[in-house]
Computed example of a mutant assay.
Amino acid sequence: MVKPTILARRTKPIHIGLSAGTFDTPNHGLGEFTHQFGRIANDLAPRLLEESNIHVSVYLRSRLHGVFGDNLRYLPLRPHHKRFNWSMRRFDLWHTLNQHVLHLPPPRAGVRMATVFDLNYAYGPEGPHQAAEAAKIERLLARTDHAATPSHFVAQDVARRTAYTGPMSVIHIGAQSLLNTRQERPPLPENIPPFYFHLSRMAESKNISALLDLAAHAGSMQFVFGGPDGAEARAAMEQARRRNISNIVFLLDLSDAQKAWLYGHCVGFLFPSLCEGFGLPPLEAMHFGKPVFLSRLTSLPEVGGDAAFYFDSFAPEAMQATIQAGCRQHEQDPQRPSYIMRHASSFNWQQCVSSYFDLYKKILGLAT
């Protein structure tokens, strides 16, 4: 462990706690954020300690201690922390890394910060689930001194839909580039024609129904749908089977090497999601210079900018026309792939996590 410099030792130690909740896998958006945040925080920790006497701790399941590296202090997450946390550890700043972390900060936590990724529940059907999710967000924000969001859209949503009136910062998250990752062809038919790729957990909020309708309508187009194995993906597969949609290949639990192959070999990437706090897969596809097709809803126009094409209708014939016109435009402009790649590279994890630590210092009145 690096020791503080003499100058840093003259200053009071600053303790920052990161609450990762029940993080287990990076195979979804929130898991990817926690994975990248922990990895880069571990890289930054020696310099923070040496220069500013800042000590970084992370609350995490005991079996995952050490997963981000050896420069962080790991503290055990206990089930009872959802009800009470009697730890007497002092933290100058406590950061709940996402709104689904239900574990409470210890009583001696100073500034309490939380990142709110989305209010997607507000865009679903009204009922007990929506009310429960809204109440959970309100409880989190009631004990939060400073909120952060991954997009201006989510910041506006929080201001409009919750009782929170405190300070709020927008820090765009990153998107990993798999461009230089070793590629591995996933289990696809040998003679598969040129295909369009979609990657998500295939929930209704991802507009999977519109994509199934598109595939049923456009029998001449080939699709590959990828995502984590789960009830939602299995339901989409069952729908395709019952409807006899034969131009979709479903691939579950893809590795990074397999995703890299699919991004690199697809004709275009489709992501007509109905609600997103940010949207990582479109940027991952953009790192390969691929044409990306998005909905105009929630945060996606903020993420895609003018480097993406947009669906103005989810009618299958309209979606097919948008894809065909966008691909023609992409093919006719030799500069477009490099422009798309530059756009994607402006969202990077190092900048994201460094911005969070700069924000911590600003909140605590430390020089940056």
Rank of each mutant, 00 (worst) to 15 (best):
H15F: 14
F197W: 04
R143H: 10
Q351L: 12
Q36S: 14
S87E: 03
F293S: 00
M221L: 07
Q176T: 14
D312P: 09
N348T: 12
D24T: 12
R10F: 06
M341R: 15
M168D: 05
L179Y: 10
M319C: 03
L366Q: 15
Y339P: 00
F91D: 00
D145M: 03
A134H: 13
F84S: 13
N207F: 03
K361D: 06
R182Q: 12
H343I: 12
I208R: 00
F278G: 04
H80W: 10
T298V: 12
F357W: 14
Q332A: 10
P281C: 09
P334A: 13
A321E: 15
A257E: 14
G31D: 13
A148N: 08
C327K: 05
K361N: 05
L270I: 08
R139W: 05
P13Y: 07
F347L: 04
S246P: 03
F271L: 09
P4Q: 10
T22L: 11
P186G: 07
E276K: 01
L60D: 10
F293Y: 00
F347V: 03
P106H: 09
G127L: 04
F68H: 02
G277Q: 09
Q99S: 09
P76I: 08
P107F: 11
L252M: 15
R108E: 06
V2W: 07
F309M: 07
Y121P: 13
M221N: 03
I171R: 07
S205D: 06
F223P: 01
M88P: 11
S246L: 11
Q99F: 11
P337A: 08
S87N: 05
H100C: 12
Y360T: 03
S52Y: 07
G110Q: 03
R234T: 10
L141C: 10
A218C: 07
M221A: 14
T149K: 06
P272R: 09
L178M: 15
G29K: 08
H265P: 00
P128A: 14
L211Q: 07
N348V: 10
D157L: 10
R241C: 04
T11S: 12
F293K: 01
T115I: 13
G326R: 03
R90L: 09
D358M: 11
A155V: 02
S177F: 02
S52F: 09
Q130W: 01
Q335T: 07
G31P: 03
N207Q: 07
Y74M: 13
I323Q: 02
E51I: 14
S346C: 01
V101N: 14
H100I: 10
P26D: 08
S57C: 13
N85W: 07
E51K: 13
E32M: 09
L7Q: 09
S338W: 12
R185P: 08
E138G: 04
Y263T: 06
F23A: 01
A148L: 15
H81D: 12
F311R: 01
L188Y: 11
S209I: 04
H15I: 05
M319S: 01
E184Y: 11
F271V: 05
Y196H: 15
V56T: 02
N53F: 02
V292W: 01
Q239P: 01
G226Y: 04
Y310R: 07
V353A: 11
S346P: 13
